[in-house]
C-alpha cells in the first residue's frame, strides 16, 4: 500500500515536471517501485522483467531519444479535459472488469482446472520437452509464439535502423572536427 502511494506520487511528479531528463529518471524510479510491488505479489519473473526493461533498457532508449530532441517540454496551450475524461472512463471500466474476477489465491479457478493438469501430465510424452513451460510456449502455442517473435523482430529492426541513422550523423560530425 505504501508502495502504491509512492507510485502515485511519482506519476504526479512525472506529469508536473517539464524537464524531460528528470522525467526519464522518475520513470526509472517508477519501474523499480513497480517491480517491488510485483515481487510482493509473488510474481518474481514479471518483477525481474519490469526491472530489466523498465528501469534498464527503456531508460537508455529514452536517453537516446532525448539526444535527438529537445529536453524541455512545452507548456500545453489548452487544458486537456477530453484526454482526462477518456483516461478516467477507461480506468473505471477496467476496475469494473476486475469485480467478478475470482479472489487472489483461490484454487478452483478455471486457470487451475482447464488444461493445466493435462499439460503437466502429457507434455513429456506428447512433445518430449522436459520443461513444461517451454513445451507450452514452443509446441502447444507454437503459432502464437511465432507471431510474438515476428513482432519483436520487426521492432528490433526498427530500433536498429533509428540507431544507425544517429550513429552516422555522429561519424560525420567527428570527421568535420578532424578536417
Amino acid at each position: 500500500m505504501v508502495l502504491l502511494t509512492l507510485m502515485a506520487a511519482v506519476v504526479i511528479g512525472i506529469v508536473r515536471v517539464r524537464n524531460l531528463f528528470s522525467v526519464v529518471v522518475l520513470g526509472g524510479i517508477y519501474s523499480f517501485l513497480m517491480a517491488t510491488v510485483m515481487l510482493v505479489l509473488d510474481a518474481v519473473d514479471v518483477a525481474m522483467t519490469e526491472a530489466a526493461v523498465g528501469a534498464g533498457v527503456s531508460t537508455v532508449l529514452m536517453l537516446s531519444v532525448l539526444y535527438l530532441t529537445k529536453t524541455e517540454e512545452h507548456v500545453p496551450q489548452h487544458t486537456p479535459i477530453v484526454p482526462l475524461f477518456v483516461a478516467i472512463v477507461t480506468g473505471a471500466v477496467l476496475v469494473y472488469g476486475t469485480i467478478d474476477k475470482p479472489a487472489f489465491g483461490i484454487a478452483d479457478t478455471p486457470m487451475h482446472n482447464h488444461v493445466g493438469a493435462r499439460y503437466l501430465e502429457q507434455s513429456i510424452p506428447e512433445t518430449g520437452v522436459p520443461n513444461v513451460v517451454t513445451s507450452v510456449l514452443a509446441s502447444y502455442r507454437g503459432f502464437d509464439t511465432l507471431g510474438e517473435t515476428t513482432v519483436i523482430f520487426t521492432a528490433g529492426i526498427g530500433v536498429l535502423l533509428l540507431m544507425k541513422r544517429r550513429s552516422r550523423k555522429v561519424d560525420r560530425s567527428s570527421d568535420e572536427e578532424q578536417g
Binding site: N19, V25, G28, I29, F32, A35, A51
Partner: peptide
C-alpha cells in the same frame, strides 16, 4: 537533475 539521480539510485538500493 542530480538530486533526482541520487533518488533513483536510492530507490534502486531500497528495492
Amino acid at each position: 537533475v542530480f538530486d533526482r539521480l541520487v533518488g533513483l539510485n536510492a530507490v534502486g538500493n531500497g528495492a
